[in-house]
Simulated assay, not measured.
Amino acid sequence: MNSKLSLIARQVERREQQQAPAPVETSGIGGAIEAVIERMVEERVAAALAEQRRQLEFNKPKPVTDYRDLPPIPRTRAPKSMECQLYRDELRRVNRISIGTMEFVVQRNEVGQVVRMVPADIAPLPPAAPPADINRGA
C-alpha cells in the first residue's frame, strides 16, 4: 500500500474512534422531559414538512394535455402608418420633411448633398438674405 493511502487510512480510523459515544438513556424526570421535547420537535418538523409539501403541490401548474388549453400567444400591434410629406425649394431639392407630427429641416453641404436632417424646432435659421444695395438703382 502506498504511504499516502496508509496515512489516510490511519486518519479515518482515528476519526472513527474520536466520534462521540451514543447518548446514554437517562431515567427519571430529566429523561422524560427530554423525550417529550424531542417528540414535540419531531412533530413540529413533520408538520412543517407536510405543510411545505402541500404548498408545493398546490402551487404546481397543471400539466397541459391538449393544445387548446394553451393560452394564446401575445401578438405585437401592427405599426401605425404615418404620412410623410416632402417640401421642395425652387431648385426642386428637398429642404423640409414632415413625418406625422414632426418636421425636419434638411441641411446640405456646399456641394448640395444632404448632410443631416434636424428637427425644425431646433434647426438653425437659414442665412440672412444680403441687404439690398440702396445706391444701385439711382
Rank of each mutant, 00 (worst) to 15 (best):
E90F: 07
D89A: 04
E38L: 10
Q19V: 13
G100H: 04
P61H: 07
R96Y: 12
Y67M: 14
R96K: 15
D89P: 09
P63I: 12
M40Y: 10
R75C: 09
Q18C: 08
L7M: 11
F58N: 06
E16N: 08
R14M: 02
K60P: 05
P63F: 04
I73F: 11
P21G: 13
L49Q: 14
G30V: 14
I97R: 03
G31E: 03
A46H: 04
A48M: 09
D66Y: 06
E83Q: 10
Y87T: 00
Y67I: 15
P61E: 03
D69C: 03
N59P: 00
S27L: 15
N95R: 01
Q18W: 09
E51A: 15
A47G: 03
R14N: 02
I33E: 02
R77W: 07
R15G: 04
F58A: 10
S98Y: 06
P23Y: 06
D69S: 08
V36Y: 02
Q11I: 11
R53D: 11
K62L: 13
M82L: 13
A50V: 01
E83K: 11
R93S: 07
M40F: 10
P21I: 06
R68E: 10
V12W: 06
A46F: 08
T65S: 12
P72Q: 11
P71W: 02
I29C: 04
R39A: 15
E51Q: 12
P71D: 04
V41C: 01
R15A: 14
M82C: 04
A47I: 06
R68A: 13
L56H: 09
V36T: 07
R88V: 01
P63L: 09
A78Y: 04
P23V: 02
A48T: 07
R10L: 06
V94P: 00
V41L: 03
N59W: 09
R68F: 13
R75Q: 14
Y87C: 00
L56S: 10
S98P: 01
I29A: 12
A20H: 11
V64D: 01
N95P: 01
V94M: 01
G28V: 08
I97G: 03
C84F: 06
A48P: 00
A78N: 04
I29M: 12
F58M: 03
Q18V: 01
C84E: 03
A32H: 11
E25Y: 06
C84P: 00
G28E: 11
V41G: 00
R92H: 07
G28W: 06
S98H: 12
G30H: 08
Y67N: 03
Q19T: 03
T76I: 10
Q85F: 11
E83T: 08
A78V: 07
S6F: 15
S98N: 12
Q17R: 15
E51P: 00
V45D: 03
M40I: 10
I29T: 13
L7F: 06
A9G: 13
E25I: 08
A48W: 01
E42D: 12
R68M: 14
T76P: 08
I99G: 00
E51F: 12
S6C: 12
R53C: 04
L49S: 07
T26D: 01
N95H: 06
